[in-house]
């Protein structure tokens, strides 16, 4: 009796999934297959694409610009994930242990609600070397103007900081939700045993937060690899390619040079990287099991 019931459920579940699957097939599946096909053609948007085998991939492997953009992207991901996760953890822990103010939680989300292009424009003006408010303050303090977005060494850290500003609040909220699932008695027990806040954070919060932390890391890693809008608005890959991330490279190949085939090959490459990274990360962090059980 119970087994037939489960089968029925499954059939019903498929019906509920149909709208989503249809959308996925039309807007993700089909374009992905087409993109994979274009990556082995010389498609330029004009004229019919002709099959060129692995030519695009061969060119990609030997393209120093491509490798540089990959390196630049990894540098961004390290900076962004690092700062964003640490800041978010800190904020989440503070919210968890100190205050539960709804106003504060809502405020944290504000930067995340601002459209990315607006965020980019806002910070571009604030950080501008000659006219920006931040540099005005720095000059008043005698530190002199800093080329946040124009210095080759500073441009990427600045962009990572901008995106940290925009996303840390949202990430903190996800982590905070995870912390709420940790039973309160563990903290009570620990404090009776004389553990301090830092010790509780290390020995209770962090280990028990691992599944949520893993999910947040995977999601923000994928998001970070796809950094595009902030760069398109602020530096457009300058100075001298110091911020030309992989997505911007693909965008330029596709929509400035109209090398659709080549851009598709780079995009497939990026998808592969993300797939491998996600698999490795999920495995390393044993995301599907929890220590709470």
């Amino acid at each position: 009796m119970s087994s037939t019931k489960r089968r029925d459920d499954r059939r019903a579940a498929w019906w509920f999934l149909v709208p989503v699957l249809a959308g996925f097939a039309v807007f993700y599946g089909y374009p992905a297959i087409r993109g994979a096909w274009y990556s082995v053609t010389d498609y330029t948007m004009l004229g019919t694409p002709a099959f060129v085998g692995a030519d695009n991939y061969d060119k990609l492997v030997h393209d120093s610009q491509f490798w540089r953009s990959l390196l630049v992207t990894v540098w961004y991901v390290v900076l962004n994930i690092g700062s964003q996760t640490v800041l978010a953890l800190l904020v989440a822990a503070l919210m968890h242990r100190l205050t539960r103010s709804v106003v504060l939680r809502a405020t944290l989300l504000l930067p995340w609600l601002v459209p990315n292009v607006t965020v980019g424009l806002l910070w571009m003006w604030l950080l501008d070397t000659n006219l920006g408010f931040v540099n005005h303050l720095l000059t008043t303090l005698g530190i002199g103007p800093v080329g946040f977005l124009t210095d080759a060494a500073l441009a990427m850290p600045s962009i990572a900081a901008i995106n940290t500003w925009a996303y840390a609040g949202y990430t903190a909220l996800l982590l905070y939700a995870g912390m709420l699932q940790i039973p309160q008695y563990l903290y009570e027990g620990a404090s009776i045993d004389g553990a301090g806040e830092w010790r509780m954070f290390r020995s209770i919060t962090l280990p028990l937060l691992r599944p949520v932390l893993a999910l947040v890391l995977v999601v923000s890693l994928i998001g970070s690899f796809q950094i595009f809008d902030t760069i398109a608005v602020t530096t457009q890959g300058d100075p001298a390619g110091a911020t030309r991330v992989l997505y911007y490279f693909i965008y330029q190949q596709a929509f400035s040079y109209f090398q659709m085939g080549y851009a598709s090959a780079a995009a497939v490459f990026l998808a592969l990287i993300l797939g491998v990274l996600t698999a490795v990360q999920m495995r390393l962090l044993r995301a599907s099991t929890s220590d709470l059980a």
Binding site: D128, T129, L131, V146
Partner: peptide
């Protein structure tokens, strides 16, 4: 201005300022 201390804003904005 040095390129790494240059403005990301357009030259006419800077000239205007």
């Amino acid at each position: 201005p040095a390129l790494d201390k240059n403005s990301t804003l357009s030259r006419d904005t800077l000239m205007g300022a």
